[in-house]
Amino acid sequence: MNEYWTFGLLAVTSFFTLINPLGVMPIFMTITSDLSPEQRKKTARKATIVSFFTLVAFAFSGQLLFNFFGISVNSLKVVGGIIFFIMGQDMLQARLSKIKVSEGEIQEYVNDVSITPLAIPMICGPGAITNGIVLMESANGINMMIILVASILIICLATYLILWGSSRITNFLGDTGNKILMRLMGLIVMVIAVEFFFSGLKPIIRDILAV
């Protein structure tokens, strides 16, 4: 029983740290600042649902898929870094602050940002994916597998609640506050992007030079 508690605690704490929903919240606030509360709630819900199923899918078949397609986690970091950088550049120039589109286009926008960049790679990033694969490989028996899936569900639910609650903060800041926050977060996101990119690129270059 102690083994199960230890494994569950490890899974919950590691996923919470790697997903970092509190860190995702400011970015979520900026890219959904002009959406209605209901649309923002829908975006958060879809992003966390996509993240949950993606993490579970990779946990059960990630290593097999990576080997089959010849994909490495380092490659995922490089791609994630590029996506982060482009997003951070847009945020820095406040390009995401106004969305003057029709209702149908807003729905398309919600669908787009809920999957990329919110679900992948913001919530379900290389670290969380790798963590799921590693923990699944170390899970001994069906009980630990259930605990792992339950841990992912708990963290995704917590992430949804945190993102949902960010609506009040967005309304409190107002238009000017959101623009300031967007530019500040743009800088931070671009720094994160550089770290992501080079942390994935270094091992790739090292492997190339070793050949």
Rank of each mutant, 00 (worst) to 15 (best):
N2G: 05
Y4F: 07
Y4C: 04
W5N: 02
A11W: 11
S14L: 11
F15K: 03
F15Y: 12
F15R: 08
T17C: 12
I19L: 14
I19R: 10
N20E: 03
N20K: 09
N20F: 14
M25Y: 00
I27E: 02
T30Q: 00
T32L: 11
T32Y: 14
S33W: 05
S33V: 13
D34H: 07
L35A: 10
R40V: 05
K42C: 01
R45I: 04
A47H: 09
A47P: 14
F53W: 05
T54E: 06
L55G: 00
A57Y: 05
F58Y: 11
G62C: 01
F66I: 03
I71Y: 10
V73I: 15
V79S: 10
I83E: 04
F84M: 14
F84E: 12
F84K: 07
F84C: 02
M87P: 01
Q89P: 01
D90N: 15
R95P: 06
L96C: 02
S97L: 15
K100F: 06
V101A: 15
E103R: 15
E103A: 14
Q107E: 12
Q107D: 15
V110N: 10
P117T: 07
A119P: 08
P121Q: 03
P121W: 00
M122Y: 05
I123D: 01
I123N: 03
C124R: 06
G125S: 06
A128D: 02
V134R: 08
L135T: 02
S138Q: 14
N140K: 10
I142K: 07
I142W: 07
N143P: 00
I147T: 10
I147N: 07
V149H: 13
S151I: 02
S151W: 03
I154R: 01
I154V: 14
L161V: 12
W164V: 04
S167P: 00
R168M: 12
R168V: 05
N171R: 04
L173V: 11
T176L: 08
I180P: 04
L181Q: 11
L181F: 12
M182S: 15
G186M: 07
L187G: 15
I188Q: 06
V189F: 15
M190C: 15
I192Y: 15
E195H: 13
F198Y: 13
S199L: 09
S199E: 07
L201K: 12
I205A: 15
I205T: 07
R206L: 04
D207W: 02
D207L: 03
L209I: 10
L209T: 08
L209D: 04
V211H: 08
